[in-house]
């Protein structure tokens, strides 16, 4: 088999194993919650008949291994069942709000990279300067602030006091400008900590790379400083940042819950949050499952991007 193909299939296999593990854990969720999920869902005043009927509809009366298999079957076919409260297919409910969360996460990551990377590059190329120290203080403050606090302050300052930006919601459907404007505060509140993180990481890895002998070689051949920093050093220094970003997507998806609640945006976060409040576990499972899948997918992409960034990590046929 071609080494690239073998690498890819190996990587896909581990990804599949992670997904299987995650699905099993999600299944265990229904076993771990105290009480019968059906009675929890229907509340204390439900009749035993109603509970039994719902339990049967949810398949809770079957043996454990059968329920696990059923759950895997549901996940595999994408048929996640029907929501007992609204009577709508759960998958549809998740898919309706998924674009909002994905947009928010991409906007936050994009913002963090677009601000953090140049900030880190500036700090690394001017170490010890006033700008570097200001960037350091800002970065550490950004990292230290929990993003829900940032979200509340942003809301207070820009929506309530200054009245520059709309307060709540994701914007009118079809009105792209309105949607973009309403994306600003949530994505900034999610991105701010990551700006600090990426700036610090970028600074230290770029400083390290700039001390490498091959950078000295590039200087010895008169290659301009800008090209050395932004071409020769940046690609080497990007590797740790990309690794952190892979994990960051998972954290951002989790952090999106706060931003979505505070800014009253639809999304996986609000969906799961509301489902938890109503003890609607099938919806919680579905929401978390989608987040897990997104996370696993991003990490697969990150792993593949390592090979793009660093040819030494590519599968080799042999070295001459």
């Amino acid at each position: 088999m071609h080494p690239t193909l073998r690498y890819l299939s190996g990587r896909l296999l581990t990804t599949a194993l992670v997904v299987v593990g995650a699905v099993t854990l999600l299944f265990a969720l229904t076993l771990l919650v105290p009480g019968n999920p059906a009675s929890v869902l229907l509340g204390p005043r439900a009749t035993p008949e109603a509970v039994a009927a719902l339990a049967e509809r949810m398949g809770l009366d079957r043996p454990l291994h059968e329920r696990l298999l059923m759950f895997f079957g549901q996940v595999a076919t994408g048929n996640l069942g029907t929501d007992v409260i609204s009577g709508r297919p759960i998958l549809t409910m998740v898919m309706e709000v998924l674009p909002f969360t994905v947009t928010l996460t991409i906007a936050a990551i994009g913002l963090a990279v677009l601000v953090g990377v140049p900030l880190g590059c500036y700090a690394a190329t001017n170490p010890g300067s006033r700008g570097d120290r200001v960037a350091a203080v800002l970065s550490v403050s950004f990292i230290a602030m929990p993003n829900f606090v940032v979200a509340i302050f942003l809301l207070l300052i820009f929506s309530i006091w200054l009245d520059w930006l709309p307060v709540l919601g994701a914007g009118e459907p079809g009105d792209v400008l309105d949607q973009l404007v309403r994306l600003i505060l949530p994505s900034v509140s999610l991105a701010l900590g990551w700006v600090g993180y990426i700036a610090r990481l970028m600074r230290s890895s770029l400083l390290e790379v700039l001390g490498e002998p091959y950078i000295r070689t590039a200087r010895a051949f008169g290659i301009p400083d800008r090209k050395i920093v932004y071409k020769y050093a940046l690609k080497n220094a990007a590797i740790p940042t990309v690794a952190i970003l892979g994990l960051g997507v998972g954290r951002l998806l989790g952090g999106a819950i706060f931003a979505e609640i505070i800014f009253a945006r639809p999304g996986i976060g609000t969906l799961v949050y509301d489902a938890i409040l109503t003890r609607n576990y099938p919806v919680v499972q579905a929401g978390v499952l989608v987040v897990v899948l997104l996370f696993v997918l991003t990490n697969l992409l990150v792993d593949l991007s390592y090979a793009w960034l660093d040819p030494r990590l590519r599968p080799q046929k042999g070295v001459a």
Binding site: E212, P213, Y214, I215, R216, T217, A218, R219, A220, F221, G222, I223, K227, Y232, K235, N236, L309, D310, P311, R312
Partner: peptide
């Protein structure tokens, strides 16, 4: 001046070339 007037070959060839760019890119850029 560097490169076209005075160029340098370093002691350790294992670290003198940038690991993430093709030899071609580096040879064209210099």
């Amino acid at each position: 001046m560097r490169g076209r007037r005075v160029a340098m070959v370093f002691q350790d060839p294992m670290t003198a070339l940038n690991p993430v760019f093709r030899v071609e890119t580096q040879m064209v850029d210099v």
